[in-house]
Simulated scan of single mutants.
Amino acid sequence: MSSPAGRSDDDSWDLASSVGATATMVAAARAVASTEPDPLIDDPFAAPLVRAVGVDFFTKMVDGDLQPPAEAREAVTAMTTVMAVRTRFFDDFFLSSVRGPGAPAIKQAVILASGLDSRAYRLPWPAGTVVYEIDQPEVIDFKTTTLAGIGAEPTAELRTVAVDLRDDWPAALIAKGFDPAAPTAWSAEGLLIYLPPEAQDRLFDNITAISAPGSRLATEYHLDAGAALGQRSAEIRRLFNNGGGPGAFELDFADLAYSGERQPVADYLSARGWDVTARPRPEVFADYGRTFPTTEALAPLRDSLSVIATRV
């Protein structure tokens, strides 16, 4: 499969460019969602991190300085709702995993492609939990330095693993003290579409190889989310940019995400010894008292699945 226009086999990024900028976008949505009435999430670190990255559009978004027309406000609200529900889903996954209702609690958690995820700082992890964050070195360094600068402290033992997922990340993880013989809670959130289909399979193979029985994994599956997100970013640019210029929305998912047919995640994991539950996204929204947005740009994502798997 050929790479998208903005990608190459050895590309890298910071949090203001390429795939890294999508992490900043997600953090901006989390920041806005945290200020809503009856919020689903509370992420006090999202806005400071976004401001530190310095992408004008996202800084204005978290500071309430965007002045969009009504149609554009609807697009931002829809994006914020999607990210809030997704964030809460993964929050609840981790907390249920480490608190162990009905099963022994898991003591180590791995956040793949952690980006500006602040769960290691904001979730109430039980004593003795070790959280591993894996991402590109520049991303890890930026987040760690920025949060230290505002006095934030992890609420678990945090071990960062500065490695590209295209490299031998299992070895790097184990070198940081990860125990393959102990159950693990894994997250692959907002990640799969930025991997070629064969790399998605390899990721799950690597996870399986170092997951002890009782390990749990949360992820998502989109039939062709690369194309769907490309449509969404094009719509946001149309609504906001008015010809471009300073502060314009410049992300184009079509240049970043790998579209095309993928192995269905539930089937792939089931065949490798995982007990899998996959639920449609509107059903997950309903669980949290939300309705999946009806905007045309998000319609292709209605068929996305929220996946939780347990290693047997």
Rank of each mutant, 00 (worst) to 15 (best):
Q231W: 01
D141A: 14
V19Q: 08
G115M: 05
R279F: 06
L298D: 03
R122L: 02
R302E: 12
P197K: 10
Y221S: 14
T146L: 07
R279A: 04
D42P: 03
A47H: 04
F93P: 13
Y258G: 04
E283A: 13
A278C: 06
R166V: 07
R99L: 09
V53L: 04
A257G: 05
F253Q: 03
G260N: 15
R202T: 00
A227G: 14
W186C: 09
A234E: 03
A212R: 12
R311F: 09
G243I: 13
F240I: 04
S304R: 00
L123I: 11
A286V: 05
G177T: 00
D56E: 15
E198A: 15
R262N: 10
G244N: 08
T155D: 03
E261Q: 11
I41Q: 03
S114M: 01
M1T: 11
E74I: 14
A228E: 04
Y288F: 15
I111L: 11
G64M: 08
A46W: 01
L112Y: 02
P69K: 14
V53I: 13
K176T: 07
H222N: 15
G226S: 13
P126L: 11
D164T: 13
A16F: 08
V26D: 05
G54E: 09
G226E: 08
T294S: 14
L66E: 02
A212I: 09
G247L: 12
R99Q: 15
W169K: 02
A23R: 01
F89I: 07
D205Q: 11
A266G: 11
Y132V: 05
T155E: 00
A28T: 02
G128R: 09
A199Q: 05
P39T: 06
A21D: 01
E235T: 15
R281E: 10
F253D: 00
T35N: 00
V110H: 00
S3H: 15
L158V: 05
V276F: 10
E153Q: 12
F45P: 00
L66K: 07
D168W: 15
V62R: 03
V276E: 12
F94R: 04
R159S: 01
P197N: 09
A228F: 00
S17N: 13
V19L: 12
L203E: 05
I111T: 05
R279Y: 08
R86A: 09
G273T: 11
K176P: 05
G64T: 06
